[in-house]
Design a protein around this nucleic acid. Sequence first.
DNA 1: CCCGCCATCAACCGATCGGTGGATGCTCCC
DNA 2: GGGAGCATCCACCGATCGGTTGATGGCGGG
Lengths: 204, 204
Amino acid sequence: MIRVLVADDHPIVRGGIVALLATADDVEVIGEAPDGLTAVELAERLEPDLVLLDLRMPGLDGDEATARILSARPSTKVVILTTYESDTSILTAIEAGASGYLLKAAPPEEILAGIRSVAGGEVVLAPSIAALLVGRSARPTVSLSARETEVLRLVAQGQSNPAIAATLFVSEATVKTHLLHAFEKLGVNDRTRAVTKAMELGLL
Amino acid sequence: MIRVLVADDHPIVRGGIVALLATADDVEVIGEAPDGLTAVELAERLEPDLVLLDLRMPGLDGDEATARILSARPSTKVVILTTYESDTSILTAIEAGASGYLLKAAPPEEILAGIRSVAGGEVVLAPSIAALLVGRSARPTVSLSARETEVLRLVAQGQSNPAIAATLFVSEATVKTHLLHAFEKLGVNDRTRAVTKAMELGLL
DNA sequence: CCCGCCATCAACCGATCGGTGGATGCTCCC
DNA sequence: GGGAGCATCCACCGATCGGTTGATGGCGGG
């Protein structure tokens, strides 16, 4: 019997998950949490075999909740159940130690199969998420310095280089240098594309 | 007895909705649709009193499905059940004639009450959506022409005015004119802010 | 100590951008 | 017919941008 804790902030979705799990003889729902904090508390108190976690919840996101649950109970498995999210969130959840990543859009049998595999010790990725990670790992990780990010944020607000220099109490040459460094890191040639690229990468 | 058709592309969410409606004595689920097209077909065939529609579905969105359902069956009520979406989508659904707008995050009793009110002839808005519409109506509506949008899209990709002119087979002066018109409509002074503002407004 | 990263700064130059003040022509609607 | 919106186009000019080629100093880690 796999003892499962379900955490999702939408009552309808929780109800749907619970109804699905109720159809499985080898799965027992031992608790429901409407947010990340409650999920962590219930995981510590009820000691589930597996926590089914939404990635985006109020107060404490799924990736942070994952880290806390695994810190408190290393033997509990965490499965992220997600609407297709950007790869930044998924990467963070991986780093936090989740063992499964399933899409809410998946057929019910696939979700149940995923839960059973994870409870049996495997790591399970929905195919589209696996593809996302494969594509992602072929790309070098991009990160901007704090100052580069700050300058780009002001660029996104429509400020000119002289205005940004005044805002940050530095010279225009400094602003330009930060921008050029950001362009290099992002592989772009102009401020506008730098902003849109940084947004795509979740850096802004 | 309120005869309801449920349309949502996520099996889990559909299951949750169906489970919730099963708890109500006066509501009967007469069908389920995984996408907008099927929802339209089933609405015509099964003749529900009320269709519960997700706003974002593959193939045919909720607003388009709403328009088609109401065109085929004007007496059927449409309730949009949505994760908090940008106001553009909600406005489109209003224009299509939906009678209710409820959030998936709402407590189950609130969703059932909303369904009963709509079935009784009322228009029902979740409070946060009502607030959104009130705030929205105080703002002038911004819209860009097709050409303005197209030019902005290319700007967002990092193209210069001369490059955009070559891409669109027009002169650079034409590109600049479109950009200046877009700046006026968006209330901005530079291309970068025009792009980020258009994205915020859901125009890009 | 050396290296890498970060923050800061300069001057010069060509390309691009934004603004200005026009213009024509087409379509749709009152 | 007239007005509004849209698409297209022009020349000129000052401001800004992006690139180049440097430079200094601080901090942390091997």
